[in-house]
Design a protein around this nucleic acid. Structure first.
Length: 277
DNA sequence: AAACAGGCCTAAA
DNA sequence: TTTAGGCCTGTT
């Protein structure tokens, strides 16, 4: 992937394996929204940005003071997804899935945001998940001005740790409010050190995350994959359960996909959800 | 109107 | 170790 970094912006020259629609709509993130023709605006790690096509190139323009290196990191631009697609295309189904999902990248999201977001996602649908997260940010995040609009950052664990579940009621997240506050308090007081988990192994991360009330295997694996950037994590939700049963029967193990099983999962999920028949 | 939605927890076998 | 029912809320 070749790109040019300037001030707070990146221009991707050969935008192979970079499809904004797939990246933002494949279900890994909740804070990027399409506004207008192929333009996405979002907030990540305290910065606002927009992503758009500029001729053959893709341009990522972030808010004032965002280092381009931050964009390289968040969009994982130095990783070779073509190679990953080859490595997970182990059979005809995965060849179709990885071909259909070509252009997806796993964003390196803030671990706390990923934890909180995937707690909200449980037993819920995407429009409602997005609505809940937006009101959470509107109420408790910091405002950022970006291109004439006021957006809001994701509130810190410290901020949410000081709230009662009653104060969270306006965001209408139901029983998940207590889970959110419990997680916020664990992170805030240091009982759960997400930074340390990012440097630990998968097993330790899974164990630690599951000590939180409201975090089971599925949510924990989403946090590990999307927030800790361990690309072997393999979240299994209802869609994955169905498609795994269909194509692999029982006795399936994610290890057949190797170290990038999590990327395979994302291709398979996206294909089952939007592509297959 | 009743079921369902990108799980998790608890209680009970 | 596996299974059933309940959980907030909004939508169909």
């Amino acid at each position: 992937m070749h790109y040019i970094m300037t001030n707070n912006q990146i221009e991707i020259i050969d935008a192979l394996d970079f499809d904004p629609v797939k990246i933002f709509e494949c279900g890994q993130c909740f804070r990027w929204n399409a506004d207008g023709e192929g333009v996405y605006t979002g907030v990540f790690r305290g910065h606002a940005a927009k992503v758009f096509h500029d001729g053959d190139r893709i341009c990522i323009r972030a808010s004032e003071g965002t280092a381009p290196e931050e964009l390289v990191d968040y969009f994982d631009l130095d990783r070779n997804y073509e190679e990953i697609r080859r490595s997970v295309a182990i059979d005809s189904h995965m060849r179709s899935a990885s071909d259909f999902g070509k252009g997806i990248r796993i964003l390196r999201q803030d671990p706390w945001e990923a934890l909180c977001s995937f707690i909200v996602s449980q037993c819920n649908n995407i429009p409602r998940i997005k609505k809940i997260i937006e009101s959470l940010c509107l109420m408790f995040g910091e405002p950022i001005c970006f291109e004439g609009r006021t957006l809001h950052t994701f509130p810190s664990a410290d901020t949410l740790a000081g709230l009662s579940s009653r104060e969270l009621e306006p965001i209408r997240c139901g029983y998940r409010a207590e889970y959110i506050i419990g997680a916020a308090r664990a992170v805030s007081c240091g009982a759960l050190d997400l930074g340390a988990l990012a440097r630990s192994g998968y097993d330790e991360a899974l164990r630690a995350l599951k000590t939180l009330n409201g975090v089971g295997d599925k949510v924990a694996n989403c946090v590990i994959l999307f927030g800790l950037n361990m690309l072997g994590a393999f979240p299994i939700d209802v869609w994955m359960k169905k498609t795994l049963a269909k194509h692999y029967g029982d006795g399936f193990s994610p290890s057949v996909f190797g170290e990038y099983a999590g990327v395979a999962q994302q291709y398979m999920f996206f294909y089952a959800r939007f592509g297959e028949k």
